[in-house]
Write a protein that binds this DNA or RNA. Sequence first.
DNA 1: TTCAAACATGACTATATGATCAGTGATACA
DNA 2: TGTATCACTGATCATATAGTCATGTTTGAA
Lengths: 305, 305
Amino acid sequence: MFEKLFESNGLSLDRLRSFLSFAVAGSIAKAAPRDVNRQSQISRQISELETFFGAELTERRGKELVPSAAGDRLAELIRQQLRDLEDFQHEQAKTKKAFTIGAGASILDWLVLPVIGAIRDELGQATVSLETFRSHTLVEAVKNGRVDFAIVRKNALPENAKSKPLIDLTFHLCLSRHLLKRGTPASAADDPKVWQTLPFTAGKDGGQLDVTLRQAMLEAGVDFHPVVECNSMLQARQLIESGECAGVLPSVGIHGLEAKGIVVREFAPLKNYGRHLVLHWNERQMRRRGVDGAAIKQIALVLRR
Amino acid sequence: MFEKLFESNGLSLDRLRSFLSFAVAGSIAKAAPRDVNRQSQISRQISELETFFGAELTERRGKELVPSAAGDRLAELIRQQLRDLEDFQHEQAKTKKAFTIGAGASILDWLVLPVIGAIRDELGQATVSLETFRSHTLVEAVKNGRVDFAIVRKNALPENAKSKPLIDLTFHLCLSRHLLKRGTPASAADDPKVWQTLPFTAGKDGGQLDVTLRQAMLEAGVDFHPVVECNSMLQARQLIESGECAGVLPSVGIHGLEAKGIVVREFAPLKNYGRHLVLHWNERQMRRRGVDGAAIKQIALVLRR
DNA sequence: TTCAAACATGACTATATGATCAGTGATACA
DNA sequence: TGTATCACTGATCATATAGTCATGTTTGAA
């Protein structure tokens, strides 16, 4: 199909465009005022098109070159074609895209939600849909395109996966001062024997953090029975703020707690849990949806604050 | 105009064509059966178009890749555009062109006319218009495009002008045997003193050959007064054939004369007149009218017999 | 689980095309 | 008859695109 058009050289969008600019302006010099380079370029490209079509697309009028009748027809053809392509381009660019960001619930709550506006700025005001994932399924979800961006632990990623570092998560035991025996210093909260006596809250979803926490408690010799099992870290924080429970929160979720009289102590068992969070994405998906590397870099920057 | 289309890379006629072939075939593999190279090329070009438009032009169906809705629309767009271009191409190619061949009258009569069919073959059966020119204006006529081909003396051309050698013209004194005194050998016709007695025919147009002939006669001490001044060499040959006149004919015009009892002798005064005839043409004009070097070469060949 | 088909991708090479510069003609106009 | 404008051309460089090869990944089916 269309073999004739492609079997010889001399046809290119750029040449067609140059010819159109010549035809619209009315002469080569008018098409590129005060630019002799461009003039010679246009002259050459016109001549190449004439060779390609084997037709006289131009004629001399005095010292100027003007489009011939055939040239005018060609110009109209080109104008329509480029307009169609541009329309298609605009139409596609305008199509509202929905980007999906996947992460653990608390990460979405505390890391993503506060900067969701800035992220949408980078994505051309696209709709953003947040999805809670277990970390081990996130990598898969990115790979098959169900999720555009994911925030995951770096060590959950395969070797050569694209990622940008975000923050290093730490974990903190948080509890209202009054949950400790009167007179004891805040540092008493570091003692696993004390933990046994505290009314803990914890997740009930079997997520990685939850499992790890229970594991850590077990290893510390604590018979861990949270008094409230909740669905999200936001709920946990509320329970902690109200003084009802003690709990272990990630660093992203402790902002402002101390000001409210909550004791915040680094939670030793998870010290080396090592949650180097990174932003992960599907390269091909990004290209197809028109997101370039700079935008991704900006998003990572925003997520780091 | 259309800046958006050209400010980024990734758009080219070739890619559009590849995408069309993919869309028509229904998958990459079907578009290039048993050609893994082409397949990878198409895959890449599709991906480049998707990047360019920032849109998903394809979607997976099982292990195949098929055009998406947007992809189908793009394919239709491309099909129409290429069809339009091809139509234009055909239309221009079919346009009957009129090529003009310029030369001196006798050259046209004796060199060009006998092979005009073969010349038209090389020019795609184009209309050919023959124009008589004085040799010194021919070069000018080629330069400004009024004439496509010219047959001229090589030494009339500027230094670097394109040309192909045709034939070397010689000149011959031709006359009916009975115009010589009975009993004299044919070689008597070589004697300038005899010329004075002959009833000559010659041109009256003041053309270069005519002028040169009269000059040569003067230098040979002959008081040259042709009895018939005619408009063309064809007329002169007729006069010679009928026995009415003697005359000087170029080599291209003496074929068959001797068989009719005409004495043909080399005409010494013009021996070194040096008419190395060449085919000359306007390079740019040839490109614009779709005549390639091979065709020109063939035409020269035909003119050499 | 294994295999082959379909597609994707990295790393090249080759080629066409675009860009730039310098210089030459041609033409109109003062 | 200069002179400025406009167009053309040869030469060369820079770059985008096409083409090739090897290999990886996903998917459906045996």
